[in-house]
Design a protein around this nucleic acid. Structure first.
Lengths: 223, 223
DNA sequence: GATAGTTTCATACAAGTGTTTGAAATGCAA
DNA sequence: TTGCATTTCAAACACTTGTATGAAACTATC
């Protein structure tokens, strides 16, 4: 595969356009115009429009997941096979948030693309997301090791809520900024990560490890 | 004006089809076929496809928001103008979750439609969601009254996280079921509501629960 | 039952879509 | 250079989409 120049140009142009205008508004003709290549090049190099989108998303997705697992592994090794729950959650939501948030003017194309992908849900991307379960299971396993007396149900709910807070914050960052009249600083990524991890940790440890469990808390959990 | 039969038939057919197959896969021709009306009827009665979708979403949206405010008002009146935070959060996420979750085989068309609307984000619906901020401000206000020593920033983050957990759970209910191998029971709506409210309450009260000013008129919030 | 106002209908329209084609250009090895 | 494979290109293809039209069918009022 000689120079790959065309292929690369298409990927870059597509990522930029999708990031800026969303999937619904960008046609192949827009992309090839931006990339200065021929219309047929997309189908020649990628097979179809959907496969182009899939490749874009998979690339970024793999990068994030690798970073997640790297952090997770480091945390578990450091803890001798059992990482503190905060670190596990940090590894789970940190890379995602870090990859999408941050000062808007210095946000990479990749970041903006991933935000789009998380707002608009287009078939090829949805298909890939559905294959993410095995990846999440690794985190569920680590969480189970970190909190051995916690039921599986609670673990999964905690995992679900952690992802919920991270993804929703990304999806609705604009709205949160507007709602809070700028008081919530979405550009301070590490603060956002800390907030999500903190709440998720509470969700997972409430009534168990908590030093002073509120007497009238709604500890309605089974087991 | 007379019978409105066509209008109603279109609305019903559209809701059903969108609920079943999503916005991307359903064309006006599918809808009019299902409704047994003429193609031009959609534009005659609704003006455009987008306005049809908007009307569907607005209708359900208004119903949910009314229920939310009803619960909120009841809670605040009962507490003499200041409702317990749990009740406020319950009013915020309860109607949404109740309207979308529940045993799949007895889920209404409206419920399935709203799930779709929350998964796929199509322009007319996004436009309406953007106007939801004023509605959310009412909850922010109630929360501020309930937790007067909490900063605005914390209030908004708590609100954001509560909505995050509710919406994400709806959006990804299928995945959570699969990930947990059925252990997380999404059909038990009240349990889901309780979990979300519980975590959101912790997020909002962490570190300050015990020092709440006494002489509060909410001694009976056990639940 | 004539009239005016609605509503329905078949049909056409206009535009946009991803994809395919087959020939021309290019790159590269022998 | 010759030959062969890869890559590019303009053009057309084959649909599908939402929307507009104008005549026909209906409805209700007088």
């Amino acid at each position: 595969m000689a120079s790959d120049h065309t292929r690369t140009a298409i990927l870059a142009a597509a990522e930029r356009l999708y990031a800026d205008r969303g999937f619904g508004d960008v046609t192949l003709r827009d992309i090839v115009a931006e990339a200065n290549v021929n219309l047929a090049a997309v189908n020649y190099h990628f097979g179809s429009k959907d496969e182009l989108i899939a490749e874009l998303f998979v690339t970024r997705s793999i990068a994030t997941n690798r970073e997640r697992l790297r952090e997770l592994k480091a945390a578990e090794e450091q803890g001798g096979g059992r990482a503190p729950i905060e670190m596990i959650l940090h590894a789970l939501v940190g890379p995602t948030l870090r990859g999408c948030l941050g000062p808007e003017n210095q946000r990479s194309t990749a970041a903006r693309f991933m935000i789009r992908a998380s707002i608009e849900s287009v078939p090829p991307i949805r298909r890939i997301k559905n294959r993410e379960i095995d990846h999440l299971r690794k985190f569920a396993g680590a969480m189970r090791r970190a909190l051995p007396d916690r039921s599986d149900v609670d673990i999964y709910w905690g995992l679900n809520f952690a992802l919920a807070m991270a993804h929703h914050t990304i999806r609705e960052s604009e709205r949160l900024t507007k709602l809070s009249e700028g008081k919530c600083d979405l550009d301070d990524v590490e603060d956002v990560v800390a907030r999500v991890v903190s709440v998720a940790t509470m969700a997972l440890t409430a009534g168990k490890v908590e030093v002073r469990p509120p007497a009238r808390a709604l500890a309605r959990d089974a087991r």
